[in-house]
Simulated scan of single mutants.
Amino acid sequence: MPRCLITGATGFVGSNLAKHVGQLGWDMRCLVRPSSDTSRLDNKAVTLVTASLETGEGLQAAVENVDYVFHVAGRTTALQPAEFDATNVAGAKHLAEACAQQTSPPTLVMVSSLAAGGPGTFEQPRREGDLDQPVSDYGRSKLSGEKAASKFAEDVPLSIIRPPIIFGPGDHAGLSLYKTISTMRIHLRPGFRKFPVSLVHVNDLCQAMTTIAQRGERVQASDNSGRAAGTYYVAAERALPYAELGRVAGAAAGWATLALPFPPAGFWIAGAIGELFGHARRRACLLNFDKIREALSVGWVCSDEKIRQQLGYQPAATLEERFSETVAWYRQQGWL
C-alpha cells in the first residue's frame, strides 16, 4: 500500500485530494497546524502530523517513510509580496530539503499554478516549454517556489503540476461567482475582450496528481531540452471565453445569465477598495491589485496535450456536468 503525505490538506484542493487518496486505499498523513480546522478530513482514515513549512520544523519526521509527498499548501493572496515568498517559496524549499535528507527520498509532486507560466490565449495556449512570464506577485512566487524545489531535483524525484482555475466541491472562490449570479443574474467580464480561460475540476486535478506521482516525468536538475521535463499543465476538455463561463455556470443552477462587460477602470477601483479593506483588517482580500493584474491580462489558457499524450489523462466529465455537480454540492451543504 503506498504511503503519502499531503500538505494543505485542510484546504479546498487538499481536502479533495485526501478524499481521492483515501478512495485509492493509500496510507495517508496530512500536514496541519495546531490551529487547523480538520473538519473536512476523515480523521479515522488519516494520520495528522504537525510541522511548519515556513521554518521547516518537524518536516523531516513528517516525510519519513512515505512514498509520495503532495505539496498542495500555498498562499493565493497577500498584503505584501514577502508574504507570498514566506509560504510559496520558503515552504517549497524546506519541504524539498526535508525530502532530500531521507535515506530513500519520496517522490514530491508540487502543485504550482498556470500563473507561474503566465497568460495564454486560444491561439497561443501556455505550454510547458514556453518561456515563463508571470504577471503577478502570486505567479512570480509560485515560479520561485518551483525553482527552490528544483534545486533538490538531483536527490528528490520531483514533478510539478500547473493547474488553471480550479473549481468543484468546497470551492469558496467559485461560490462568490454563484452568489453574484444568483443575486443579479448577471456575470461581469473584463471589458469587451474574449478573455479566454482554462479550468479544471478538482477531481480531475486530483486524479492527475496521483497519476503523475506514480508514472510521471521528473524534473531534471539541468534541463536544456526546451520541454520542461517534469512539468505538466492540466485542464478541462475545453477552454472558453469568460462570458461563456458565466453562462455555463449559471445554466448549471437553472439560471439564465447575462454577461456584461465591466470597464478596466472599474476593476482597478474594485481592486483599490479590496486593498484598503485588506490593510484595514490586516488580512488580504480575494479582490486586490495583484488579482486585477491577472484579470486584465490577455487570457489564461493552457494546453494539457503533454499529460494527455504521455499519461493518458482525460477529464472524467464535461464542464457542464462538472458545474452541475458543483451546484448540487453547494446546495446540499446549504452554501447556495
Rank of each mutant, 00 (worst) to 15 (best):
Y138I: 02
V111L: 09
M184C: 10
R283D: 13
P134N: 07
Q309A: 14
F152M: 05
S303H: 08
D204H: 09
A272V: 02
I6D: 11
D85P: 00
R293H: 15
R75N: 15
L175C: 03
S225Q: 04
V135M: 12
Y233P: 03
S104G: 01
G117N: 14
L199R: 01
W329L: 08
A98V: 05
G271N: 08
P106L: 00
S52I: 07
E320I: 03
G250E: 12
G226V: 02
A228K: 12
D223N: 00
T77D: 10
T76W: 13
E97Q: 14
T77N: 15
F267H: 12
K291N: 10
L59Q: 03
V248E: 15
R322D: 15
S112A: 01
L79F: 08
Y138G: 02
A51P: 05
R282L: 02
S52P: 08
T55I: 03
A149Q: 04
L131Q: 09
T318G: 09
Q309W: 06
Q214K: 10
Y330D: 00
F152N: 03
E54W: 03
P264M: 06
H71A: 11
Q333K: 02
N288Y: 08
P34S: 11
W335M: 04
L175D: 01
Q220N: 09
G230H: 11
S52T: 04
S39M: 03
D137H: 06
W26M: 03
E97G: 04
A253R: 04
A317H: 09
A328T: 01
V72W: 15
P34I: 09
T211Y: 03
H187C: 14
T183Y: 10
P196A: 11
R283E: 14
I186D: 00
